[in-house]
C-alpha cells in the first residue's frame, strides 16, 4: 500500500511527465489554448496511459525481457527480445487507441464527442510511449504498480496541461513583448513552472538519498551503484569475518 502511495505521488509531482522529463510537449503546447479542450485531451491521456502501461508491462514481462520466454519451455530461456520493444510498444499503443476509439464511440457517444478528436492524436503523443518506456527502464515490479504508474503519470500530465491552459487564458490580458507572444512566453512560463515543480524533488526521497535527476533517468546507474554498495558491504563483512577469525585464533 505504501509503495502504491509513494509511486502515485512521485509520478504526479516529482517525475511529472511535462515538467521533469518533457514528454508530450507537442500536444501540451498545441492544445493548451483553452481550458475546456485541455481537459478533454488530459482525460484522454490518463485513460490511454492507464490502459497501455499495464498491457505493455505484460508484453515486457512475458515476451520481451531477457529470459521472458521461459514459459514456452526451458529451451527458450536464452532469448532476449528486448530490441523489439519499441516496435511492439508502439503497435500496442496504436491498436489500443483505435480500439478505445471504437468502443467509446459505440457505448458513450457523449464521451466520444468530447474526447473523439483527441484520441487519434494520442497515438503519437510522446507521453504515452514514454510512459511505457519508463515503465520498462524503471523495472516496475508488478502489474498493479504498472497500472498505478500509468494512471498517476497521466494525472500529472493532466494537471500540467490544465495549469498552462488556465495561465494562457489569463495572459491574453497582459502586455507581453511582441516577439515573445504565443509560443515564446509559453515556453518561459513552462520553464518557471518546472522550476516550481523541482521543489517537490525532496518530498519523497529519504534523508540520505541524493535528489533524483529526472532527465538522465539514472535508474541504471543507481542500480550499478547499489550493486557496488552491496559488494562493498559483502567485502566489509568478509573482512570483519576474517578479522574475527584471526582474533579467535
Amino acid at each position: 500500500m505504501l509503495e502504491h502511495l509513494e509511486l502515485f505521488f512521485k509520478s504526479i509531482f516529482v517525475d511529472n511527465m511535462v515538467f521533469a522529463v518533457f514528454l508530450g510537449m507537442c500536444s501540451y503546447l498545441a492544445v493548451s489554448k483553452k481550458v475546456s479542450t485541455a481537459v478533454g485531451l488530459g482525460a484522454a491521456v490518463i485513460f490511454v496511459l492507464g490502459v497501455t502501461v499495464p498491457l505493455n508491462w505484460l508484453l515486457d514481462q512475458y515476451l520481451l525481457k531477457d529470459g521472458a520466454l521461459v514459459w514456452l519451455g526451458p529451451e527458450y530461456a536464452d532469448y532476449d527480445l528486448g530490441f523489439l520493444s519499441f516496435i511492439l510498444f508502439i503497435a500496442t499503443i496504436a491498436t489500443m487507441v483505435q480500439l478505445v476509439e471504437i468502443v467509446v464511440e459505440k457505448f458513450s457517444p457523449s464521451l466520444y464527442n468530447s474526447l473523439g478528436i483527441f484520441l487519434p492524436l494520442i497515438a503519437v503523443n510522446c507521453a504515452i510511449l514514454g510512459g511505457s518506456l519508463f515503465m520498462q527502464t524503471r523495472e516496475i515490479p508488478n502489474i498493479g504498480l504498472a497500472f498505478n504508474y500509468g494512471i498517476s503519470s497521466g494525472i500529472g500530465w493532466f494537471l500540467a496541461i490544465l495549469a498552462i491552459a488556465a495561465i494562457r487564458e489569463k495572459i491574453r490580458y497582459s502586455n507581453v513583448p511582441a516577439p515573445l507572444r504565443g509560443l515564446g512566453i509559453t515556453f518561459i512560463i513552462t520553464g518557471l513552472m518546472g522550476i516550481g515543480f523541482q521543489s517537490f524533488g525532496g518530498m519523497l526521497t529519504g534523508d540520505n538519498e541524493p535528489p533524483e535527476e529526472a532527465t538522465k533517468a539514472t535508474v541504471k546507474t543507481e542500480k550499478i551503484e547499489k550493486e557496488k554498495e552491496i559488494k562493498e558491504e559483502i567485502e566489509d563483512e568478509e573482512k570483519a569475518v576474517s578479522y574475527n577469525e584471526a582474533i579467535n585464533k
Binding site: A20, G191, A214
Partner: peptide
C-alpha cells in the same frame, strides 16, 4: 531540466 525551456524561449 526547466532551464532548457527558458533557453528555447529566449531563442524564439
Amino acid at each position: 531540466p526547466p532551464a532548457a525551456l527558458i533557453v528555447v524561449g529566449i531563442i524564439i
